[in-house]
Nucleic acid binder design. Sequence first.
DNA 1: CGACAGGTTGAGGTACCTCAACGTCGGTGG
DNA 2: CCACCGACGTTGAGGTACCTCAACCTGTCG
Lengths: 249, 249
Amino acid sequence: MQRATMNRPPVSEGQNARNAPCAACPVREQALCAALNDKEIGRLNEISVTRRYSAGETVINEGSAANSGYNLISGHVKLYKLLSDGRRQITGFLVPGDFIGISASELYSYSAEAIDETVLCGFPRTGLDSLMQQIPGLLHRMLSIASDELMQAQEHALLLGRKTAAERVSTFLLSLARRHGDNARGGNGGLQIPLPMTRSDIADYLGLTTETVSRVLSELKRASIIRLPTRSSVEIVSAEALESRSDQL
Amino acid sequence: MQRATMNRPPVSEGQNARNAPCAACPVREQALCAALNDKEIGRLNEISVTRRYSAGETVINEGSAANSGYNLISGHVKLYKLLSDGRRQITGFLVPGDFIGISASELYSYSAEAIDETVLCGFPRTGLDSLMQQIPGLLHRMLSIASDELMQAQEHALLLGRKTAAERVSTFLLSLARRHGDNARGGNGGLQIPLPMTRSDIADYLGLTTETVSRVLSELKRASIIRLPTRSSVEIVSAEALESRSDQL
DNA sequence: CGACAGGTTGAGGTACCTCAACGTCGGTGG
DNA sequence: CCACCGACGTTGAGGTACCTCAACCTGTCG
C-alpha cells in the first residue's frame, strides 16, 4: 500500500518525472495540464509531487500558508469553511481533474479534506508562479478555472439563499449527474451515481441538516424519482422530475 | 446630462482617449488598470468606451452574449441571479474600481444593474482578450481579481448557508465598513457609511426578507450599536459589538 | 399636495431545525 | 464465521427562526 511517491517533500528530487510520468496521468487532458504541450508538461512534472491521502485526511487547513496547488488525480475532496462554534459550510466537492488551491491571499481561506482514498499531484506555489510567468497558456488556463469556479459559486449562492430544501437536494443530484456524465446507466435505464460523501457532508453543502436531507431523499424515493441502492450511491430514475423540482440548472 | 461619451458604439473612433483620458481616471490605480504602465493603458484606452447608467438600468442580462467587460468608475452596481418564479439572489454589490464581466462561458451567467447614477468604462471582450495575450500583467491581474471574487463568494456561501439573520446583517455592515475605509468618522466617533441599495436589495443579498432585515436593523439601533440617520446610510457606533454578533470576518 | 415606492412594525403561519429513538451496514475480534 | 460495535442514516414529535400577510409610517417627486 505504501508507495515510493508518498510523503515526498515538495522539494524536487529529479526523480518525480519517473515516479509520476504525466503521459500516463489519467487527468492529463483535463485540469491545468490540458493547456500544456508535452515539453511544457515536462517542466510542470519536474516540480510536481504525487501523494496519497486516506479518507478524512486534511489536505489544506484554513489559515495556513498558501504555498501549494494540487491537481486531483483520483478520489474526492471537499472544501469547507468553519464558524467559531463549529458550524460548517462546504463550498464544493471536487472530482478528478479539478484544481485545488486557487488563492488570492497568502493564506488559504478554506480547508480541504479527502473524502475517500485520494491521490493528489501537488505543486509548490513558487514553481507554479514562475511557470505561469513563462507559459501564458498556463496562466490563461488558471483564469478560466477560476472563472468557472466563480460561476459555480454564484449558482451555489442562489441555491443557499433562495431555494427550498427539496429544490436544493434536487439541484444537487442533477449537478452530480451532470458531472458524472451520461455513462453508467442502470438496469431500468436509470443513471447510477456514486455518493462518496456522507449525508452530513451533503447537508453542510446544501445549508441543511442531515435529517432534512434524509427526509427529502426518502420522499424522492417514495415518489419513485430516485432509488437508493446503497448508502453511497443514488440511481436517478427520472431526471425530468428532478429538473422540475430544482427550478433550473 | 447627456454627454459626448454616452452610448458610443464599442468601435474605436480615435477620440475616446480624449473623452476618457485614463490619466485622469479616479480608478486609474485600482481595478485592471493598476497592472498597466502608461503606454499599456493607452492601448486599453483605445478600446474603451465610458457610458453613464441611471439607477435601475440594466448593464448585463443573464443569458446574453458575454462580449464586454467593464470597470466601475463611479456609482454602485449589483449582480444577481433569478429563479423562474422571480426569487432573486444578489451575489455582490460593486464599488468604484471593481471589474464587471468575468465570465467562463460565452454567455453571462448573471445580471448586473446600476443601483444609483453610475459610470462604467466598457471594453469589448475581443480587444480585452488580445490585450491579455500581449500583456501578461493584465492576464495576471485578471486572475487575481477572479481569485479574490472567488474568496468573497465562499465567504458569502458561509453566510447564506450557516449564519443567523442577526449574524448576516452584522457581517454585511462590517464588510461595508471595511470596504468604505476608516475615513468618514461621524460626530460621536461612529463610522458613517452610505447604503445606496434598498432594504430589498440587502435582503436578496443576505437570503432574507426585507422585513427581517428591517427588524434586525431596528434591534441593532435599539441596542445603540448602529444609528440610521437616513434610509440610505448607517452609522456604526460599535464595530466591536457587530463583530461579536457576526461570528468572524 | 397627493401619490407612491420604500420602510417599519405587528400577528400569525410554516419550513426547517432540534432532540430523541430506532435502524442499518461495514468492520473487527473472539 | 458470526456477534458485536460504532458510525452513519432514517423516522418521528415538537420547537423556533424566519416568512407571510397586512397595516401603517415616511420621505420624495411630480
